[in-house]
């Protein structure tokens, strides 16, 4: 089994806020991330597929294809956007790094399944070079 990873970057703004909580509790739990004017990051997205190399091409998947899927499914929707205000999956879900990793998985998985062959193995999102979250499709 070979694991192949494609990296992409996008820039977006967000804030953390649970509408069921008071302002005080939001500030206590989320700190500066709860600032209602939002803030932004340069995110790095790593998409890992697992599969066997094709005996003819030697590819697990064509990286050009994977790049186009990431652009179409994720970057076109998220890059230079305010995640809370402009991205439907975060209308009622806090765009934490964890939830962004899960949302990226949900956006990418149908195209990977449709293509057949390699399976989606891992999605990792770096919010900064020091902070990342991962989703591996586990229930």
């Amino acid at each position: 089994m070979i694991f192949l990873t494609r990296r992409a970057t996008f820039s977006a703004s967000h804030y953390y806020w649970n509408p069921a909580w008071t302002e005080e509790k939001n500030m206590q739990v989320f700190g500066r991330c709860a600032n209602r004017n939002g803030h932004g990051h340069n995110y790095t997205l790593e998409v890992t597929l697992a599969g066997e190399p094709d005996p003819i091409t030697g590819f697990v998947v064509d990286l050009k294809w994977l790049k186009s899927v990431i652009e179409r499914e994720v970057l076109d929707a998220w890059d230079h956007r305010h995640l809370n205000l402009e991205v439907p999956e975060f209308a009622a879900t806090i765009p934490t790094t964890e939830n962004i990793a899960i949302a990226a998985w949900k956006r990418l998985e149908p195209s990977v399944i449709e293509a057949g062959g390699a399976r989606l193995s891992r999605v990792r999102i770096y919010e900064t070079p020091e902070i990342f979250a991962e989703f591996r499709g586990e229930a």
């Binding site: 790094t97 964890e98 990793a101 899960i102 070079p129 020091e130 902070i131 990342f132 979250a133 991962e134 989703f135 591996r136 586990e138 229930a139």
Partner: peptide, 10 residues
């Protein structure tokens, strides 16, 4: 759903 959170320190 299970997710993973990572943080780097030096």
């Amino acid at each position: 759903m299970i997710a993973y959170f990572g943080r780097r320190y030096t």
